[in-house]
Design a protein around this nucleic acid. Structure first.
Lengths: 260, 260
DNA sequence: ACATCGGCTTGATATGAGTCAATCGCAACG
DNA sequence: CGTTGCGATTGACTCATATCAAGCCGATGT
């Protein structure tokens, strides 16, 4: 099995393809440390605007003051925390969850390496959901007020931030559509296709990967119970669309899934 | 019945305080005409940032070049239209709908006077949904590239735009939660409460109002069928929580609804 | 090798919401 | 004034998904 085929294989913190420069500044067990250099980060094309001059890139880097490591199950921020920064996932993955008073909660998103995190706090100045690492993870921290300053000075940065927020709006609208109009089967198919596509843009195999989230988390995200998720996986298995062994997923028939 | 009590009574197009300035340089068949003055607009507190200097306010006005009238059932923009401007609803109301290939569609939002509209296009440069007037309506047109220029020059404008987009993100996350975890009864209750609250901030009665949307549109928004919406209204009626006659709504027990 | 535990699968049954269909109310119109 | 038509309501029945329950699988620790 190819190394690149599994993002679980290639993504654990220890093996994150950090700047090939070799001298990993990773200090185990410290919560924060100097940020990596964007200029050599393999995720730059995903989380930074194109077309920055070297000087501007330099400034962007200087504003991302630190990175932070979050262990599996720990939170990056919680609902009602004051909003100071947005985050770029550098390694690992997160879920964002909103909590209802009565204890029910719903997963509102999964965020892979290269995704941004934290924009939910922009409106009110307080975060509106919890962001929890679903594996050991690492994020770059971008103080939002500094980013706003930068936005006022560099047009492409402004456009990038607007695109980031706009993308979040579209992503959520898509999910609403999914929750509002699709059957359980279609939702799970859409979920797998979405994940597959995102892994592909990150250079991983779109067909073979490991889920980092549990059936329960997937169900919460898709508005159904974990048993239903499981049944749908079994159904796809029977229909020859995917091959699942617990969290290992191999998509056998991408078109077939899309047709569902 | 008090005039202010019904937003259907106070909002008809004919009574919008348009400026009489007259000479429209634009298409004669009335799709557009000079914008009203923000400085005298009763919705300013909702759609404009606080704390602008008079000069800045002047500039904001100059950038909102025209307003446009849309008749009931017509669209302000459609999915895949190129994204040029965002809009502020000046009078009337809109629904935004996303269309699935197979023809199914879902309402993703209702936008009342004072709401913004069109941010769904920021990310890709194309609109991702249709915006359709659900009554005769009127919008201010704000060219987005000019707004971006303004954002770079005036901090409060930038913050306002960020808040606008952030608010949209939070609004959608709330709706996802609703679609993902709540029963039909709870959804309808939440819908009424939300509408009630928004009317209240606009100075209308939070208890007595007319729905401008059909049961089917409400159902589509809430992820259920129109019959179910109707049954829930009947149930609330029976429980003494609301008093409905078709589109006329009177909320009798706000707390009771919230408890659902 | 064994015990344990969390996560996953599968089956039997219950139920909330969808579907289909009949009827009603009301506004618009000839 | 009756007709038409759209939207809303209501009832009977169906079906997808939730719920409850039992057992399985694989990782982990002893």
């Amino acid at each position: 099995m190819s190394d690149v085929a599994e993002y679980t294989e290639i993504m654990p913190l220890q093996r994150v393809p950090l700047p090939a420069s070799g001298h990993s500044p990773l200090a185990p067990s410290v919560p924060a440390r100097p940020a990596a250099r964007c200029s050599t980060c393999s995720l730059r094309s995903i989380c930074m605007p194109q077309g920055l001059t070297p000087a501007e890139l330099e400034r962007m880097e200087s504003l991302m003051c630190v990175s932070r490591t979050i262990k599996q199950g720990e939170s990056l921020y919680r609902a009602n925390d004051s909003f100071q920064s947005i985050y770029a996932v550098r390694a690992g993955s997160f879920k964002t969850v909103v909590m209802h008073r009565d204890g029910r909660e719903q997963v509102t998103g999964f965020h892979l390496a290269g995704d941004s995190l934290g924009l939910d706090g922009v409106c009110s100045g307080k975060h509106s959901c919890d962001a929890i690492a679903i594996e050991d993870s690492n994020v770059c921290i971008i103080p939002f007020h500094l980013l706003e300053v930068m936005c006022r000075e560099v047009k492409v940065v402004q456009q990038h931030v607007h695109r980031l927020m706009g993308g979040e709006i579209v992503r959520e609208a898509t999910l609403m559509m999914l929750l509002g109009t699709m059957s359980a089967e279609q939702r799970v198919a859409a979920f797998l296709l979405n994940l597959s596509g995102r892994l592909k843009t990150r250079g991983y195999s779109p067909a073979t990967f490991n889920l980092r989230m549990t059936r329960e988390e997937i169900g919460s995200y898709l508005g159904m119970k974990l048993e239903t998720v499981s049944r749908m996986f079994s159904k796809f298995q029977k229909d020859g669309l995917v091959d699942t062994h617990g969290k290992q997923i191999r998509i056998l028939d991408l078109e077939g899934l899309a047709r569902v």
